[in-house]
Design a binder for these strands. Structure first.
Length: 322
DNA sequence: GTTGAGCGTT
């Protein structure tokens, strides 16, 4: 038969590449793999049945169908769950993220007027997007509203939008948040909050909010007092928060460093057991945590320390200095 | 029958 070339592509619609055959008309899998690393075989679309057919492979040698390769385009087979497949998966999920196609979750609606009904909720939230669930929590006996409820949207974009603002419902301001049951260690790498290090004292919460708005909806800015050269910024969308981690950004002419705000397993008990941060506070004589000098943790990005700092500053409790 | 920070009878 003599040496010839067969046309091979990664996809039926892509431009094929010519792969040399052997003198006996067969094609070595190694020849295919030389151009398509990781290839484990070939397939083609039968002109008769219009189905994909596999090419016979015996000990690394590909045999022509009908003893003739013809002018068909052969498509490369890759092993299941190999690198290429993984890349396709990544690409697919990346598209999902970019398009905002993400699983939604129930949002708790806090501050509802006693009179607000589920129909009221549906009518109100329906103006943001498709509502697929509403609930008003009531006392089973009396049927009286407990003043809070839940809502679930069809689209993640809608959820983000709704979480990013307050809501005037039947004359009261209400907040929509992720319920506690949906937070926590459910998805540890999905933090919506970032740590902003190297802050200067002239950076106000409003400065930070305005700056970070360019990346996405900002739902909270927290600056510890007294000044400690860091802040926490929370976004409505965890993807935004994650995308900023590791960045050095310029705010008011100074470079701040963004890193993750929440430890994967930042358990205060674990820290105490390690004996690194445990002890008795000389101020209150009963607290069990130490926080070191400002300049130490201000420039230290160890998640555990930051978590402790945040717990203290947010709870309004005093803290210990050495 | 009241109230106003919170966290969901299944």
């Amino acid at each position: 038969m003599g040496e010839m070339y067969i046309r091979v592509a990664e996809d039926e619609n892509e431009e094929p590449m010519e792969i040399p055959s052997e003198d006996d008309g067969t094609v070595l899998l190694s020849s295919v793999a030389a151009q398509f690393p990781g290839a484990c075989g070939l397939r083609y679309r039968s002109p008769v049945s219009q189905c994909m057919r596999g090419v016979r492979l015996v000990e690394g040698v590909l045999h022509a169908p009908e003893s003739n390769w013809g002018n068909l385009v052969y498509v490369v087979n890759y092993p299941k769950d190999n690198k290429r497949k993984m890349e396709e998966m990544d690409a697919a999920s990346a598209v999902k993220i970019k398009r905002g196609i993400q699983k939604t979750s129930d949002l708790i609606v806090l501050g509802l007027p006693w009179k607000t009904s589920e129909q009221d909720l549906k009518d109100y939230f329906g103006t943001f997007g498709e509502v697929i669930m509403v609930q008003v929590k009531r006392d089973p006996k009396s049927g009286n509203s407990k003043g809070f409820g839940f809502v679930r949207f069809a689209d993640y974009e809608t959820q983000v939008k709704v979480m990013s603002q307050r809501h005037m419902i039947d004359g009261r301001w209400c907040d929509c948040k992720l319920p506690n049951s949906k937070q926590g260690p459910d998805e540890p790498l999905r933090s919506r909050k970032v740590f902003v290090g190297r802050c200067t004292e002239d950076m106000t919460a409003e400065d930070l909010r305005e700056f970070f708005m360019q990346y996405g909806e900002v739902t909270d800015v927290f600056i510890p007092k007294p000044f400690r050269a860091f802040a926490f910024v929370t976004f409505a969308d965890d993807q935004v928060a994650q995308s900023l981690c590791g960045e050095d950004l310029i705010i008011k002419g100074v470079s701040v460093h963004i890193s993750n705000a929440e430890p994967k397993h930042g358990n205060s008990r674990q820290m105490m057991e390690r004996g690194r941060f445990g002890g008795v506070c000389f101020l209150c004589n009963s607290l069990q945590y130490f926080v070191f000098k400002t300049y130490i943790f201000a420039f230290c990005f160890e998640e555990e320390i930051l978590n402790v700092v945040e717990r203290f500053t947010q709870s309004g409790q005093h803290y210990c200095i050495e």
